[in-house]
Design a protein around this nucleic acid. Structure first.
Lengths: 222, 222
DNA sequence: ACAAAAGTGTTACGAGTACACCCATGG
DNA sequence: CCATGGGTGTACTCGTAACACTTTTGT
């Protein structure tokens, strides 16, 4: 069933930079391409926008299809529209980025676990299309937003210690933080609260567990 | 000459929020629609992305077609992709915003000057499509960016006084500024320099004229 | 008792804000 | 000489950054 237009139309896709933090490293989710072009190369998850779904909804759907995760923080990043991005036809891509807390997340790939993997952002392979550029931009946006909002909390599981949270901030921004100043700062923002529970692990004093006051909310600072 | 695809494709347009500052007011350029849908209503300038031009290039081209201006600061804002934005067919719009210095700018409309006009952002009419929402978002982005960068300077003509510049900042951000603090601040940023000329107008001491050190450049602060 | 991470307060510095008077010009 | 906007310096405030020791637990 063909679709005909009087003027040529581009195809529109969404591509998603899915971030998570694991073992002291910021990671992105990549999918190995199964067909041409760039067969076998790593690329961002994503797909074509259906004719009756909004672009935002497409990103949500693609994210769920690749990771099985719903209710994840997702934000539009930028639209990449160079005419030669894809060799098959004109494809315009609306890029998004997502923040996934690593609490027992298992990837649901099309067929095989070998097709999807978390890569440390420092050591990415050469990506298909212009996806390398998209990741670079997403990383810059994330680092910037960590400074003037509370997005960082979205990487956290339901409960966490302040040391965990500080470690996350240090990992994503690269820069070390003073423990006392960090705690003063995060508590003054009034976005986390004690759960009353403690986490005892190892031969040291157990840490108080905290949770977000309004889960999923991002507070803009200043 | 028809174009056929195996899957339905959306149309893609760019819409541009062209800002300028004139007589103590922030203004946007609107075009009166000549055909359906929303015939006779005011809308943002813009048009369809050609199949062999980049989305950015489309925005540049549309801006020049409507205003005759080249080399204007243009930045991608956001992509609006709800399926029912346009009643004719599925249209995804990549929105941009532009900053135009008002130095003898004359609009070049399709046929008639009555079709294009500067409107004060406070008192806009009801706009076609979702263009009202686009303007709101552009205004928010501009105000935010005024705080952490030197975009504001792009509203200035080639040479200007510091009082002019201060007036601009007060107009765009709404908030009044202390004269001495404003001067200290802008000079400490090291982005303007004296031209050596003075501007004498009216019965008072002539003001020193300044120019941007690197015209067109936007410096990120902090 | 010792190793290992949790938890806690005070001082110093710098950026931003508040504030008032003299200067140069045209009429 | 007076009305009008141009131009200049200092003191205070507040948020950010630097910095070290005690507490609680497991082994």
């Amino acid at each position: 069933m063909p679709y005909t237009y009087t003027h040529p139309h581009p195809a529109v896709t969404t591509d998603i930079v899915v971030f998570t933090v694991e073992t002291q490293a910021l990671k992105v989710l990549l999918i190995r391409r199964k067909g041409p072009p760039h067969e076998g190369q790593w690329a961002l998850p994503g797909g074509f926008v259906r004719i009756d779904e909004s672009v935002d909804a497409c990103a949500v759907r693609e994210l769920e299809e690749e990771t099985g995760l719903k209710g994840i923080y997702l934000e539009q990043l930028y639209t990449f529209g160079d005419p030669d991005r894809d060799t098959r036809e004109r494809v315009i891509s609306v890029a998004y980025y997502a923040l996934v807390p690593l609490q027992g997340l298992e990837l649901r790939s099309g067929t095989d676990a070998a097709d999807a993997a978390w890569w440390t952002v420092g050591g990415l392979p050469v990506l298909a299309f212009d996806h390398g550029r998209i990741v670079t931009m997403a990383r810059a946006r994330l680092t910037a937003k960590m400074e003037y909002s509370t997005v960082g909390l979205l990487f956290m599981p339901d409960s966490f210690t302040l040391s965990d949270l500080q470690g996350l901030y240090e990992t994503v921004s690269g820069r070390p933080r003073d423990k006392r100043n960090f705690r003063k700062w995060i508590l003054s923002l009034d976005v986390v609260e004690e759960t009353g529970e403690r986490k005892a692990e190892g031969a040291h004093r157990p840490a108080m567990l905290y949770r977000m006051k309004t889960p999923g909310n991002v507070k803009i600072i200043k």
